[in-house]
Design a protein around this nucleic acid. Structure first.
Lengths: 251, 251
DNA sequence: TCAAAAGTGTTCGTAGTACACCCATGT
DNA sequence: ACATGGGTGTACTACGAACACTTTTGA
């Protein structure tokens, strides 16, 4: 009986988001894999779950390993679990995927299992989202899950993310978009407080539109119930100083 | 290195929903466990994932084992993955939780690992939902995940569902409620086609209100975009025969 | 013919959109 | 002073809620 029970490897895959205030761009962390499979391919940061470690603790350890950051307060939420057998080529592995929203853009250090670690700028291109770092570009897909996994074995190449990470990234973007109007946790990448303009910047990218296409007055009226005023104002650019807001704690 | 990697058991937990047209009640399947741990406790149907079996295939096998039903067409969707170490008492096990919406209420047969299998009527009681079968009652919780798992080790009793199934059920109800207005897959338990009254019956229960509190005229206007007319009318009760609708295929 | 249930239509209030106008700062 | 961006206010529109009214069946 025990033999037919499979005990596959449990991989924690983490999509780590942050925000670059200097360029007002959303960033996603990718690492270059040091080992096979997919050696030298870019991938979402992963780690194996260890004994006596919860998924949350594994996520925390992953962040510490990959970017040398020990956060006291940060937000991680479960995305989904990916179990399709075609997602790995050799030994079977399930992926428990999480998303982490870092309140700042930390400098990176490539940790165990990676020869490089970089922030990729998150944007959009026609109908898909895109991660860019200099000449490197990775796009999300418009395929369905069935379509994607069917074609996956044939699409192995250096231009693609490792494993099914393109699909995981696609699901992540869709989830964030869906939650923008009622639980915009993605705004946590703006840190403790933010201006309405910064919030609109993020909304604009996920909605594949421009900042100016989102009217500030209307945005305030429709989303203010999600925010709390954070009193003081900042002063970084020309024009009238903006008020600061912070995310209203949910529930 | 390999030794520190944990390979916990992978449990597939399935919340199986159906609808009893005779009594117009929502039903959830529970089984009585044949083996330790939680021997003789009621629980959500579970199975271990086997080698060379995807989570979807395991779900299909579980339905076949528990209720002897081989469906060609049915809908299963992922709920979440539960990894808290406190969820099991002995060996650690992750739970990949899925929801299945059966298009009919099948007769049951207790399969392997269960001494009994019954449909429980789904209703609500004050602030919680409740599963009832004669003198048996199981409620959802209003605690947070942290609160729930902290108290879990102390709450083992025959009056409670096994493991953290109370929490899994709570998350499931919340998910269905959240999706009622944009992707009401729960309506699949009504079968291929349904009347607006039947749809309102389901909405009423999840919203913890009464059927008559949901105005038929307004319900049609606000939710018609989710449905397609299924032409003919049924004739089962007094009054004007109702039109039939079916769920609009998503995307 | 009356009750019950389904379907249609009308009014009203609220919430989102478009847009004009005022305010505060840097150059 | 003027350009830039933030903030306020107003008119218009759309959609959901409340509810009256009509239609179709069974008893």
């Amino acid at each position: 009986m025990a033999n037919i029970l499979e005990r596959p490897l449990i991989t924690i895959t983490n999509i780590i988001w942050s925000f670059d205030r200097a360029t007002q761009q959303i960033q996603v962390l990718l690492v270059k894999r040091a080992h096979a499979p997919f050696k030298d391919s870019w991938a979402l940061p992963e780690t194996f779950m260890r004994a006596n470690e919860s998924a949350d603790e594994a996520t925390l350890r992953l962040i510490k390993e990959k970017i040398g950051l020990t956060l006291t307060e940060f937000h991680t939420e479960q995305l989904a679990t990916f179990t399709d057998r075609r997602r790995t080529t050799d030994e079977r592995a399930l992926s428990l995927a999480y998303m982490t929203f870092l309140p700042e853009m930390s400098p990176l250090q490539a940790g165990y299992g990676a020869t490089d670690a970089r922030w990729f700028t998150f944007g959009f291109l026609k109908k898909t989202y895109q991660l860019s770092n200099q000449q490197l570009h990775f796009q999300t897909t418009n395929a369905t899950a069935d379509q994607y996994y069917q074609k996956l074995p044939a699409t192995k190449s250096a231009e693609q993310l490792a494993f099914d990470h393109q699909w995981i990234l696609t699901v992540a973007c869709q989830r964030i978009l869906n939650k923008l109007d009622y639980q915009p946790n993605i705004l946590m990448i703006l840190g403790a407080s933010f201006t309405l303009r910064e919030a609109r910047t993020i909304y604009a990218i996920f909605r594949k539109t421009t900042l100016n296409a989102i009217d500030n007055s209307n945005f305030k009226k429709t989303h203010q119930h999600l925010f709390l005023e954070a009193g003081t104002t900042s002063q970084l650019r020309v024009g009238r100083p903006a008020r600061l807001y912070r995310l209203k704690p949910q529930n």
